[in-house]
Design a protein around this nucleic acid. Structure first.
Lengths: 114, 114
DNA sequence: TTACACTGTTTCACAACCGAAACATTTGAG
DNA sequence: CTCAAATGTTTCGGTTGTGAAACAGTGTAA
């Protein structure tokens, strides 16, 4: 299924990056995208601390990325009622749609290579 | 060979993004990465004008990205002697190595999925 | 030669991101 | 109750990227 040569991998990345750059949507940074993907693909719960550790970045990086993507409607925050120090990061409909489009886009580009 | 499901595509992206973010190398922006990949994968010659048109961004974006990546040693600039208005963007050994690593990294993550 | 068209670059004011450190809130242990 | 530990956020100073517009250098055609 997924047997990728190095050259094909780079070509896939180029095509996908180009699609994202050319589009009118505001670009997400690489870090923001990594956070978004982790929130949607890894099992919850997701906390600021956990994401920071997982990505090997500082906590403020996560807070700021959540601010930005929160405004865009791609993720939501909620306090953990069991331990009110924690903030739980949650998925949104808009975020799901965004990633669905991204996935389809990559698949599309992959098909053009094979 | 390359038959990617949407979920697999997103998982591949997540893993690759995480590898890039976690690394100590300074992150390239999505735009910078798109430029770098285009210079190395599409046939030369590459000009500022051409890249700007290809990525659908303004010329200063290309100039600045080339400044940054030039300092990093990932690309080089040279004036076109046939038409000295043009600047030709050239590959470097360091840039080749950088993309080689990126390609291997994506292939590696793809293998873990299949 | 003179005027114009075309390159890539620089400038401007502004917004976004960064790491480190200080901060407020909440929890839990003594 | 009190104080230390843990959470996420905000502030600080500095760096980098942005679009629009002005810019300098080069080619081209009248």
């Amino acid at each position: 299924m997924v047997d990728l040569k190095s050259g094909q991998a780079l070509s896939l990345w180029q095509k996908s990056m180009l699609e994202q750059v050319r589009g009118s949507d505001p670009d997400l940074t690489v870090r923001q995208l990594a956070i978004l993907l982790t929130v949607y693909l890894d099992p919850p719960p997701h906390t600021v601390r956990g994401l920071a550790s997982h990505l090997n970045v500082t906590k403020p990086v996560i807070t700021r990325a959540l601010d930005t993507m929160g405004i865009m409607g791609l993720v939501a925050r909620r306090r953990d009622e069991r331990d009110r120090r924690n903030v739980l990061i949650q998925r949104t409909v808009k975020g799901s749609e965004y990633l669905e489009r991204l996935g389809d886009l990559v698949v599309e580009q992959a098909r053009e290579i094979g």
